[in-house]
């Protein structure tokens, strides 16, 4: 008999194996659910107690790694962040993320996401060689940080691409994740990679393919607003084309710390240990000579 605070929910799980060539189907499992259980907990219960053959991807269980993205009751969500009882449904339908090939059951092939992400060069690009041979930290104000911070919270879970209606029709579209990542670096005051990224972004299947449906923003589990990033990216590209963009040198490195000596604090004594070492080494040199 179930405890008073325990309910039974039917998990309707998409089953498919790209390796065996079988047709996709749904399989149902009854799972005892209590307050606090997530969809991922339900999947773990099924795998451990009912059917060890179901395949899903998960890792951190706390909405950080972005591994457990799937379509839950018709909406792309992270399984580890979706409380079963909050769905307010007797049936929890779990499907793999849309717009990706399926490897097995609810495990999608995220290669296209990673390929597009890599294509926009998601790292700081600088024309000087400070990045190759760093001397000091970059100087960046809190306001400059604010310009890109929210876009840096992306965990690459791929939910935005699953929600995007344009990705569904245009397989060559870079997608909201890659475009938001591009803007994250273009808006970074340390970066000067606009010219390097523009040939990838300023194409028919780049930033201009976005219809501004906004589904990506709605789906993002981290509160990132890729739709906003894409519109800001469009503005940046148009200003660049019209030569109206404000040319700004990338953030300089911080000046060396040189605190002014305070008269009320006595000067530190000379480092005696180093002096002893120096004297010793001099003695060794003398003996050698």
């Amino acid at each position: 008999m179930l405890a008073e605070d325990q309910k039974k929910v039917v998990f309707r799980i998409f089953r498919f194996n790209s390796g065996d060539g079988g047709a996709p189907r749904f399989q149902e499992y009854t799972v005892p659910v209590q307050k606090g259980m997530t969809v991922l907990d339900g999947l773990v219960y099924i795998k451990e107690n009912l059917d060890g053959t179901i395949a899903y991807r998960s890792s951190c269980r706390m909405g950080i790694c972005g591994s457990c993205g799937m379509i839950i009751n018709g909406f792309p969500q992270l399984a580890c962040q979706t409380q079963i009882l909050h769905l307010e449904s007797q049936v929890v339908e779990v499907r793999p993320l849309s717009n990706y090939p399926v490897i097995k059951d609810v495990v999608p092939d995220l290669s296209s996401l990673m390929r597009n992400h890599t294509a926009v060069r998601p790292y700081i690009i600088r024309l000087d060689d400070e990045k190759e041979r760093p001397t000091r930290e970059y100087l960046q104000s809190p306001q400059e940080l604010e310009a890109y911070l929210q876009f840096a919270y992306c965990i690459k879970c791929g939910l935005c691409l699953a929600a995007c209606p344009t990705v569904a029709t245009d397989a060559s579209f870079l997608g909201p994740q890659a475009l938001a990542a591009a803007y994250r670096y273009i808006a970074d005051s340390r970066d000067s990679g606009m010219e390097a990224r523009a040939p990838i972004l300023d194409t028919p299947h780049g930033v201009w393919r976005c219809h501004f449906a906004g589904a990506c923003t709605e789906a993002c589990p981290k509160g990132v607003d890729p739709a906003l990033a894409i519109q800001l990216l469009k503005r940046a590209l148009v200003l660049r084309t019209l030569r109206l963009a404000r040319v700004q040198a990338p953030a300089p490195v911080a000046p060396p710390l040189a605190p002014a000596p305070r008269p009320d604090i006595p000067k530190a004594p000379e480092p005696t240990v180093a002096l002893v070492r120096e004297q010793k080494s001099e003695g060794v040199e003398e003996r050698r000579s």
Binding site: D202, P204, G206, W208, K234, V238, T241
Partner: peptide, 9 residues
């Protein structure tokens, strides 16, 4: 040519 030109026009 840049797509942004066509879009701006």
């Amino acid at each position: 040519m840049r797509e942004s030109i066509w879009w701006t026009v």
